[in-house]
Design a protein around this nucleic acid. Sequence first.
RNA 1: GGAGAGGUGGCUGAGUGGUUGAAAGCGGCUCCCUGCUAAGGAGUUACAGGAGGCAACUUCUGUCGAGGGUUCGAAUCCCUCCCUCUCCGCCA
Length: 424
Amino acid sequence: MLDQRLIRENPNVVVTAMQRRGINIDINSLKLNSEKLKEIEALRNELQAKGNLIGKEVGLKIKSGLSPNSDEIISLREEGNSIKQKVVLLEEKERSLFKKIKANLLELPNLPSIDCPDGKDETENVEIRSWGNPLKGKNLKEHWQIAEELKLLDTQRSVRIAKSRFITLFNQGARLERALINFMLDKHISKGYIEVLPPVLVNTESLQGSGQLPKFAEESFKCSEDDLWLTPTAEVPLTSLHRGEIIPSEDLPIRYAAYSPCFRREAGSYGRDTRGLIRLHQFNKVELYWFVHPEKSKDAHDQITSDAEDILKTLELPYRVVEICTGDLGFSAARTFDLEVWLPGANAYREISSSSICEDFQARRSSIRTKEGKKTRLVHTLNASGLAIGRTMAAILENGQQPDGSVRLPNAIEPYFGAKLLKT
RNA sequence: GGAGAGGUGGCUGAGUGGUUGAAAGCGGCUCCCUGCUAAGGAGUUACAGGAGGCAACUUCUGUCGAGGGUUCGAAUCCCUCCCUCUCCGCCA
């Protein structure tokens, strides 16, 4: 959520920032409403002060022996009453205006950082660096083919259980998924992350606080009986972990690593990535999340990104880092790096992690602050996948495939999986 | 799901209509005394938002689970909701 003060005092900054995202907005009515709200607030404040004085005066006079039915008291009462009426009217106006402004604000995405490169869509994202030697060649299989041959998963029976885009893992497949989750969590925890296992059903406030609502309601599964949603990413519960709190500055930064299943409706992606582990309604993910002091968030972004990269390096998976341009930037993000893993079978890089700095956007929506002396200040938040488990498994299968049909596993996984190879 | 109890400041816990933003205790902070990892004394100590000043600060408003209502005036009375605890039921 954007700062109303910025909208009142520097509306052009907001308009220009939105243009960089490819969005044209008319900010004038929002600006006028915000100014009006301030005016009403000031007026109401003044009237309430007057009313409070009258209340005190009545109390004192009665205590000093004046009859409650004396003319003086009656006239004070009348005055109090008329103030009360005015206040009630102002409060009504204030409430409805505030609601309007809030609804308006909740629809506006974050301002792109000055560091975020301009561009119209994903074709203008910028490759920053790459790591490892991508395996290329003929007759390289795609991960779903390898998975089927090794009997790691069952697609058809998963449709019976749920519907398409759900997967059931078996034997070595299930074991590898579990090994990857444990490996990633252990790795992050060794760097000082706090492990969290959050609820996967979250309420509307939580989704709104991290930016998924109100705009992207069609992307999440909803339990309409209970005002609960299936979480699309652990970023949602992790943000809300400190919703409404003032975090003592000595506690910052707070760094969480959370495993959670993630649920996405994938509306509008019919026909894309229909086979395998790339695009599912339910997938597992280890998520990294930081609450930091606003002045330290830029360094934190580099650090959280490198923590995610570290998993890919340790798993010996070639990847590249792509900086997302303004036209492709997510709703809550000010700046984002995607990590794309090399898939030899698909002969392409695929997104496996997204590392974003949201600055104070989520913190304002969720009211998460810290204290500097006597003043409070919104914290900055950052998130990064570290990593998406299903896509990691796909990458391991494709990168480790052997001519004999087996798959060589990364060395780091052996202690978790208990073998060096996947084989029939 | 049924029955009951309760939600007050960092914590414990008073407070049933009028200088109560809130007694008391604990804790915290400052100072004094005391030569010794102890004890004693004095003072101070909720949070948020707005306005004004470079600032220490001043001032106004709101906040006793949340939201409404009654009243000149509500922590206190009324209504709705949420949460916690205990017992029963159900259940991993």
